[in-house]
Design a protein around this nucleic acid. Sequence first.
DNA 1: GCATGATCATGC
DNA 2: GCATGATCATGC
Length: 476
Amino acid sequence: MKKSLPYNPAIKSSILAYAKKLEGHSLKSICNNEIITHQYSGKGNFGQLLEKFYFFYEPNSDSEPDFPEAGVELKTSPLKKTKSVSSRAKERLVLNIINYMEIVNQDFEESSFWKKNSCLLLVFYVFEKEKDVLDYKIRIVGDWTFPESDLEIIKKDWSQIKAKVLAGKAHELSEGDTLYLAACTKGGKGGNPRKQPNSEQLAKQRAFSLKPGYVNHIIEFLASGKKETYGKLIADAKQARTETIENIIQKKFSSLIGKSVEDLVSLFSITINPLAKNYYSIITKKIINSVFNVPYDRELENYIEEFQKADVLIRTVRLKENDMPEQEISFPAFDYKKIVDESWEDSDFKADLEHKFLFIFFKMEKSKLILKKVKFWNMPFEDLAKAEMVWKETKRVVSDGIIVSSIGKDKNGKIIRKTNFPGKKFSSVAHVRPHGINSNDTYDLPKPDEYTKANFYTKHCFWLNKSYVRDKIYYD
DNA sequence: GCATGATCATGC
DNA sequence: GCATGATCATGC
């Protein structure tokens, strides 16, 4: 680079101080002259523009960090536009590409992941769809090194990804496999398949990434300089090395397994209306709340620090005497307009299914509901492929505007609509059913329905079949 | 008893 | 006011 830089690339503090000046600015407001001089072409994403017009180096895909002399890797990432003061990650933080051929010969300490990402310089900007990339407001800038106990979990995650590649299963990698560090797809619609060492199968290109929950944790840290109050499962790095989150959860619950709901309600002084449809989910919440001494009644997934970082989803299931769940497992209602524009790869449903889940099973035994089992789970690769079929059929029904198949009335004169959405017979894994406050609770359609002629329809969501929950989650 | 449509208490 | 994590209800 010919020109003299406004920072010293060899000195981390100099880089950081220079980067900090970005806060509160947009690219346009802080590097206006540079962008004009270089006749900005309108091309390039936020990260590339920042590298070129603020840090004055050409975007590259070197295996070294962006500032090799200081060992610092520059990463930019979008925030959701929120009304509240707190910032939330819009998506996972994507790091370097996984080289399947090389990772199998690496140890963590000299891995390309660790060489590149041991120290991150993070620039978070507020994403707004309608705005030009040059006008995005930069909100948070700071550096991040992984705390020791997080690093132990990340090492395990990294090793798990390596193990899958070693086993010739790079094509079966899923974000749900791991806790903080995940192998996310990169490069669009299955594009650019890559060779893997121990199988003839080509595998999707994937990159290491930090889960959105982990990124939120970084954001909170950088924004406030201190951590929020959480319940913690892991006390220190030593425990992170020797135990897993799953072990710790199992241990904490071991004395409660076999207790009845009545026992638990009195043990934890729970005073909830048993008629509430989320009664058992609230019981679960209260139990975990008490077991981990969490002072506030907050969203479960967010108040155990490790659960927040790993984006763990908690589900409570009641089983009948014959082990069949009473009900299916629901997900948030999907947006009809959104689903027709999405591909499976970037769909909300796939993202939901690729979470790590914590299942709490209650089972009816001798007329008493008993806490039976606590289990971590993520969906196996082959079942994701089955869920994809359900999602695609749903998308087809919405895009073709053929949702309603018939309208009738039940014996009380209530209107009952039949739909063409994939039902339980369509797939062993999942199906589509209503999910709203009632049938008047609707979302807009991208195209009016042929039968009703209306441009809106009752909210629906994907559900995991209860036979699937029994066979593949409870039994397995 | 299963499949599917409809609905609800809660908490933010 | 709405999303969430569920349960209730009906028809075959």
